[in-house]
């Protein structure tokens, strides 16, 4: 729970993600949403890449033909389409998948309420 709150606070602090996701965006034009998306994307991307080491699950290019030998890890690869029989399977890689090799999140100092994702601001 604590680390999930840290992750939300991180994306809010760096990329205003909580602000973006909680706002009703239907009334706005695409150009305005697009402009905001740049802010959110830039900040959240920086936060993600500096705290998580992400690698593709499969090293092949997407849309390349792949062969899965019997005994592949079903948690790593999801089979779709005409799924039947036993392996080896021949198919096309539709998504390379993502693996978080490492994730280092900020930590709360003892006594800090992690539920405050972003403090209110009052200018004096």
């Amino acid at each position: 729970m604590e680390s999930a709150l840290q992750l939300l606070a991180l994306f809010q602090r760096e990329g205003r993600l909580v602000d973006f996701l909680t706002q009703e965006i239907a009334p706005f034009a695409d150009a305005e949403i697009g402009a905001t998306a740049r802010v959110v994307h830039e900040g959240c991307r920086k936060a993600l890449l500096s705290h998580a080491t992400l690698v593709p699950v499969r090293s092949e290019e997407e849309d390349a033909a792949v062969t899965l030998n019997a005994g592949f890890d079903p948690a790593e690869v999801k089979l779709t389409g005409n799924v039947k029989g036993a392996g080896p399977y021949r198919g096309v890689l539709r998504h390379r998948g993502w693996r978080a090799k490492e994730l280092k999140l900020p930590a709360a100092v003892a006594g800090h309420d992690a539920a405050i994702l972003c403090p209110a601001e009052v200018e004096l």
């Binding site: 602000d19 706002q23 740049r38 802010v39």
Partner: peptide, 18 residues
């Protein structure tokens, strides 16, 4: 390169400077 300044308040979309 586009420059976007988000609105300061929690209403992010619509209030910024482009």
């Amino acid at each position: 390169v586009p420059i976007v300044l988000a609105a300061r308040g929690s209403k992010l979309v619509g209030g910024g400077v482009r």
